[in-house]
């Protein structure tokens, strides 16, 4: 279970001064310009249940990619609490943090972020190599995952020889390699063309149901969010505007912005499915 409690991330030279200012009132652009600061995430609170798939949704610059990086401390929060299964991750030392990242959290990036000089198999096995797993064991595990994401037999290829969709499958396999219980996905399918994106979404939903990983999935695509998410978190200018199921957002939008954001979205049948709803509420 992931819990974020009043988490802030401010980019700038004097984080604390801006933070004090921002806590008093929402600072306007002129003030931020003067302080040369940007509020990446402003006072976000969120909890993700075990096995739940939550989508962070918003326009570019709304802070969703920043927020997801606060969960594994790729970015250091300026204020607030981040807990995983009740354990405060902000108090972890460097070694414990590396341990947490390598054992419990897998991450997928929009730009694949694969290592061009390694084979597909070695890329998938990277998290295990970081953890110090012996070569044969990590290669076996990588091959197993390549089968799982539909790339069986491609382990010996060079990464550059693969198409964009295949590269993203490699990224997904890599995130699963260490068998983490949390998956962070930062716009994994945004750069792909629509057909491949749809295929990967389908495949990912099946995989995620099988594996039951707690997942935070970042996207700017409403349809994608509504299709795959148990719950959707809509962000705007660093702040969380509304949290709820797809049906909630459509039926009871918190404000006009949410209404405009979701008005053209396709609401999949799944959103009305009582089982899914029950799971989301639980």
């Amino acid at each position: 279970m992931i819990e974020l409690e009043d988490v802030w991330k401010i980019f700038g030279t004097d984080e604390q001064a801006v933070l004090a200012e921002a806590r008093r009132s929402v600072p306007d652009d002129a003030v931020l310009k003067r302080l040369r600061a940007v509020i990446g995430v402003g006072g976000a609170s969120l909890s993700v249940e075990k096995g739940e798939l939550v989508c962070l949704m918003g326009l570019s610059g709304s802070g969703k990619s920043t927020l997801v990086r606060l969960i594994n401390r790729l970015l250091e929060p300026s204020a607030g609490k981040v807990r995983i299964d009740g354990g405060d991750i902000l108090s972890l030392g460097p070694r414990a943090l590396r341990e947490l990242r390598s054992r419990r959290i897998g991450m997928v990036f929009q730009s694949h972020a694969l290592l061009a000089h390694l084979s597909v198999r070695d890329n998938v096995a990277l998290p295990l190599e970081i953890r110090g797993v012996a070569r044969t064991r990590r290669e076996d595990r990588a091959d197993e995952l390549l089968v799982r994401v539909g790339l069986d037999g491609l382990g010996d290829r060079r990464v550059a020889a693969l198409s964009g969709g295949m590269q993203q499958r490699v990224g997904l396999a890599r995130a699963l390699a260490a068998d983490p219980d949390i998956l962070l996905m930062d716009e994994p399918f945004s750069a792909l063309d629509p057909l491949i994106r749809h295929d990967l979404q389908t495949q990912f939903m099946a995989l995620s149901r099988d594996l039951g990983k707690t997942t935070v999935f970042v996207t700017h695509d409403v349809d994608e969010a509504f299709r795959i998410a148990d719950r959707v978190v809509l962000m705007r200018a660093g702040r969380i505007v509304q949290t709820g199921t797809a049906a909630d957002l459509v039926a009871q939008p918190a404000d006009d912005y949410v209404r405009r954001f979701v008005q053209n979205a396709r609401l999949p049948a799944r959103a009305q499915d009582p089982i899914v709803k029950a799971r989301a509420i639980a």
Partner: peptide, 10 residues
């Protein structure tokens, strides 16, 4: 991004 990925995996 490549460096960030490595950091993310510990």
């Amino acid at each position: 991004s490549v460096r960030e990925a490595a950091v993310a995996f510990g």
